[in-house]
Each structure stands twice: as structure tokens, then as C-alpha cells.
């Protein structure tokens, strides 16, 4: 248990919390089943990478090929990552969210995720193909020494600031009248439309906001890892985040945070422990980890679909009793 290990854990937790909060805005609050969520995280990571790296003609970087290479100073790559996520959300959202039924949206996004990975994997000149990018500069690395423990604390601090910002934004959206509109759309799209709400505009907005947050999470992750490749953003990674949200509690920001700590972070640690104990053949534990995540999703959807921390029931002052509403509804 050294500082690096603890820092690693905290930074991963921060990135996962940001990602699950974004997914909560999309899936939990607005009902958009974004099965290509990880693609937006990847877009942010790649954008942050090429914004901070020197051109690929530079001596140390000549073993890889990529577009861009602008060597921009610290906050810009992270902002650029968020922007990349948002920009990518526009065309994808325009194709998927306008006309299709919601279950079609889900499969269209799933297929998008698989294909995006195939394209980046095979198109080497764009982002170095399957080998991915390496030697990605860390934030502020020309101002401070990145090898000491103090840099880890700095990175944890930066991540924590982003977590705080994202949480604040998510809480504002969820608790605002706008959030109420989103929930209305999720519960009954036709009724919301009849009351003059534009579901396509609402969904597009949340798709773009969620895309930006996902992009930011990718930028934070890549600044810490300094490498990024197609194998890090295969579509099952999105399913982990869905599992986190389903376990934690859809539509509840606290639930999203709890889920992020339980599922991605918790599973990662348990796997690490089991691998160290050398049980069974290699690769058995990681494979079983995925099976366990699938079981978690099925188990929660069956026994407790509302998650560990259910979405609070929101009632306005002077509203009829919950029991009365239920009786009327079932009558």
C-alpha cells in the first residue's frame, strides 16, 4: 500500500465518478441509453493527447503517427477534451436521437461504439491505430516535477476539483425545472410532447452535455496514464458504467457516485487481489469479472431495479398523498 497505489485508486475513482454522473444525466435522468458512452470518453482522451503532444515529427515521438500535436499548456487539453466530447455528440445525436424508437437508439449507439473502435484500430495515420498513443505529456509537466509524490497530490487535487464541478453541474440540472422536464420526458415522452416540450432538443442537449463531461473524464484519465489505445475503450467498458449506475441508483446523483465506487473501482480492486492470489489459470479471473458484472446487472434489474439509492420521489407542496396517487393510478 504505497502512495502511488492510493493515488491511482483515487484518480480512477474520480474519473469513474465523473463518467457515471454524466451517464446518469443521460440514462438515469433523461432515459437515453447511450451505449457508446465510452466513445465520448475516448474522444476526450485523444483530443487531450494530441493537443498536449508535440507534432509526430518530433524526435522522441517519431515512432507513432497522429494528427495535430499542438503542445498546448495545461488547462487547454482538458477543455479541449470536453469540447471534443461535445462536438462528437452533435453528429451522433443528430443521426440517432431524432427519429428512432428508444430501443433502436440503444442498438444504434452500441453499433456505433463497436465500429468507431474498428475504424480507429485500423486507420493508423489518424491516431496511430491499434498501437495507440504513448508518451502523452502530463499536465503542468514543464512547471513541476512529475515524479515525486507531490505531483500525485496535485493530480488528485485537480481531479477532485473536476469531480466537484461536475457534481455541482449535475445537481443543478437534476434539481432544476429543466431536470423535471427531463424526467417527464423519460417517464412519458408523448405526454411531455403534448405539454409543449421538445424531446429531440432535450435529448440532444443532454447528449452534448454528457458528451462534454465524458470527454473531460477521458482527458483526466489520459493525463494520468500517458498512454491511450483502442483496447482501452472497447464497448464492454460502457457496460461497466451502466452496471455502476443500475447498482447505485438511476436518476440519483449520490447513487451514481456510490455505484462508481462500488462497481468499477470495487471490481478493479477485487480482481487485482484475486490475481495476486493466483487462483486458476491466467485470464480466468478477468473473464469471470465480466460474468460477475453481467450477473450484477441482471440481479439488480430483477431484485432491485431502483438501485441501492433509489431516485427520490419528488412531490410538490400540497400534492396528494403518495398512496392516493398510487391508488388512482392503479384503478
Amino acid at each position: 500500500m504505497n502512495t502511488y497505489y492510493a493515488a491511482n485508486l483515487l484518480i480512477y475513482a474520480g474519473v469513474d465518478i465523473i463518467a457515471v454522473l454524466a451517464l446518469n444525466l443521460q440514462f438515469g435522468v433523461s432515459g437515453i441509453v447511450n451505449f457508446s458512452f465510452i466513445v465520448f470518453q475516448a474522444a476526450g482522451a485523444y483530443a487531450a493527447a494530441v493537443l498536449s503532444m508535440p507534432p509526430h515529427t518530433a524526435a522522441e515521438y517519431s515512432f507513432q503517427v497522429y494528427v495535430g500535436g499542438y503542445q498546448l499548456p495545461f488547462p487547454i487539453p482538458w477543455i479541449g477534451g470536453a469540447l471534443a466530447g461535445a462536438l462528437l455528440a452533435i453528429p451522433v445525436g443528430l443521426v440517432v436521437l431524432r427519429k428512432l424508437r428508444s430501443d433502436y437508439q440503444a442498438i444504434a449507439l452500441l453499433v456505433t461504439s463497436i465500429i468507431a473502435n474498428t475504424v480507429i484500430n485500423n486507420a493508423r495515420p489518424f491516431l496511430n491505430g491499434a498501437a495507440g498513443l504513448a508518451l502523452i505529456p502530463q499536465p503542468l509537466q514543464d512547471q513541476v516535477d512529475t515524479y515525486g509524490d507531490s505531483y500525485l497530490y496535485l493530480y488528485i487535487g485537480l481531479t477532485a476539483v473536476c469531480v466537484g464541478l461536475v457534481w455541482f453541474l449535475a445537481a443543478r440540472i437534476v434539481n432544476s425545472p429543466y431536470g423535471r422536464t427531463l424526467r417527464a420526458m423519460r417517464e412519458h415522452e408523448l405526454a411531455a410532447t403534448a405539454l409543449g416540450k421538445n424531446p429531440v432538443a432535450l435529448k440532444m442537449t443532454m447528449f452534448i452535455v454528457g458528451g462534454a463531461i465524458a470527454g473531460l473524464s477521458g482527458a483526466i484519465l489520459v493525463g494520468f496514464l500517458t498512454v491511450w489505445a483502442p483496447s482501452t475503450w472497447l464497448y464492454p467498458e460502457t457496460i461497466i458504467l451502466f452496471a455502476a449506475l443500475i447498482v447505485g441508483g438511476r436518476g440519483n446523483n449520490l447513487g451514481a457516485i456510490l455505484g462508481a465506487l462500488l462497481v468499477p473501482v470495487g471490481f478493479e480492486e477485487v480482481t487485482r487481489l484475486l490475481i495476486r492470489m493466483n487462483i486458476g489459470p491466467p485470464n480466468l479471473i478477468p473473464a469471470l469479472e465480466w460474468v460477475a458484472i453481467g450477473l450484477f446487472i441482471l440481479g439488480f434489474l430483477w431484485f432491485r431495479p431502483e438501485g441501492v439509492r433509489p431516485e427520490p420521489r419528488r412531490v410538490f407542496e400540497g400534492s396528494p398523498d403518495v398512496e392516493v396517487v398510487d391508488r388512482v393510478r392503479t384503478a
Partner: peptide, 20 residues
């Protein structure tokens, strides 16, 4: 939508049960 998520979870489980 829930069924789509269920089938995706099942798909993940089949692939990883098969892998070992």
C-alpha cells in the same frame, strides 16, 4: 430498453464464460 440492457449483459456473460 431494460430488455436491451438485459440482453447486452447476457451477451457479455456468454462471451466471457466461453473465453476460458
Amino acid at each position: 430498453l431494460g430488455m436491451v440492457i438485459v440482453s447486452l449483459a447476457v451477451s457479455l456473460m456468454i462471451a466471457n464464460l466461453l473465453l476460458p
